[in-house]
Design a binder for these strands. Sequence first.
DNA 1: TTGTACGCGTTATCAG
DNA 2: CTGATAACGCGTACAA
Lengths: 319, 319
Amino acid sequence: VAALAGVGVMTASRVLSGAERVGQDKTRRVLEAASTLGYRRNENARSLRPGQRTGLIGVVITNASNPYYAEMQSGIEEVLSKHEMRMLVGNTGEDVARERRLIADFIGWHVDGLIVVPAGDDPVQLSSVGIPVVLASRPMSTIRLDTVLIDDISGAREGTKLLLSEGHRRIAFVGHGMSVSTSQRRLKGFSNAFSSASISVDPELVHFGRPERDAALQAARGLLARNNPPTAIFSANNRNTIAILHAMSEQPGGGLTSIRVVSFDNFETADLMPIHLSLIDHDPQEMGRNAAALLMDRLRGGPRSKTRVIIELATRLLP
Amino acid sequence: VAALAGVGVMTASRVLSGAERVGQDKTRRVLEAASTLGYRRNENARSLRPGQRTGLIGVVITNASNPYYAEMQSGIEEVLSKHEMRMLVGNTGEDVARERRLIADFIGWHVDGLIVVPAGDDPVQLSSVGIPVVLASRPMSTIRLDTVLIDDISGAREGTKLLLSEGHRRIAFVGHGMSVSTSQRRLKGFSNAFSSASISVDPELVHFGRPERDAALQAARGLLARNNPPTAIFSANNRNTIAILHAMSEQPGGGLTSIRVVSFDNFETADLMPIHLSLIDHDPQEMGRNAAALLMDRLRGGPRSKTRVIIELATRLLP
DNA sequence: TTGTACGCGTTATCAG
DNA sequence: CTGATAACGCGTACAA
């Protein structure tokens, strides 16, 4: 490029990375030559120099086809693009080994930071990568890392309170297919509401843990088939809610309207469902934005390094 | 690393990139040193050498929070990860300028190829990037580039045929908020079915084009408020379908069951909707897989370079 | 204001 | 089988 413009390499470099103290004529000549050759700066070489940032962020998701994480990713992208940063994205499919490989690879690309939805409670991998890491959606008990998550406990408590205030006492809890920690937090909120009201939870009505695809459907069927079915169900996530509605719609006759449902997580067609749903709403995009913003903070030397920041995003109860 | 192992740089390199013809003892020493130092190969430097692949693919999406593209991305990721390739992801928000910037940046990172959901019909940008490009979901008329898309025309035709065979004649078409080309293709299929049956489309019942958020809702309301409303509606995408159902549920009384709806695109809760929907189903993940596979083909020198490959994925009519 | 020399980490080439 | 050397493209430090 410099050759074609007939100037030194340095002059060209200066022009192309923000013209500073370069003669008018040469500036013009360089820009001309650059556009003629369709020149693009080689970011690889640029970030080869030590101390140089790559402007790359590694994003590790557990399930890219889940609309929830898609929105989160979009929130991350929104913030990153404002900072002229790019995103390397990888999918773990809840597989810890793949997570490990992905992160190692991202480190190899010298990403400036990582945003991770942790697949497992793997303390080794994330502890000493040498770059800022922000955990999204799921906390990790074993490591002190910045984390952004939903305030599951309060959200679940408020939703449960609503049911109790409506007079429901036999309330089932369905929370299959989520990470252990999230299940536990939502169940905790559920239980909290009961103990605040000095009522005890019926353990027979609590279903969670098994992550298999149809576990929630089977759980819901089981609940409905009981001699004394619950009068209300607390669903710990939107997929479970859909499964519950499926189970209810299988019931003969108009059984549909007889059970009250509160659902953690909103979803697009919630208001078109055959029964009214109360929703514990939250914004995954907001979570993505917060995670990215927190990471940007860290990169500009933000909070003191030994400090751990935990952002709990509030939920909104839509009765 | 080589220093710590007490061997030449070259020996270390050979060991770490697949031990080939290196002595046992030195191999061991190198691996030991590498793990001691937590060594990771610097991919930036690796791909600095000319002719070297970076193993990076740029993925340019128009709307990352759309579940449709999320699934597509997941399909892409699935194939890429099998080839040990990574994905740089960017979101254009249907903005041609951002698309241009993103692609320029990806080129700067020396991606080996691009998968693009084109935001506009921009012939300049994609024509001469010098690397393989695969268009996903939307064809571009102006450039000869490999493309993977849904067989919109056949799908729409089959769906419309179903309605005609059921005796419907006053059938509305609602297709807001999609790219122009996709709208046109689906409308074409719709019209095809009519002309095959020697029936003419009522232009007053055709709504498409305006991409605003509530355009479909307003269109649906308008249709329902007519003196002689249509007996069936062909919805050109799932978001429109949801809008149509909203409009129908606003109607007083049991107006819900009186209009037949066929919807292009499936969605998760379709079977829980207040009326039965016939669906023109297709798999975005499959599209992603195909796009990535086609790109991999190109990279291994696949089809002759002057050839253009167009993959049309079949739809499945769920009556 | 402009040019030169060097180093970043990796691998291809070639000599030992 | 091993090691020294060059080169990739860019930015920094220094010299002119």
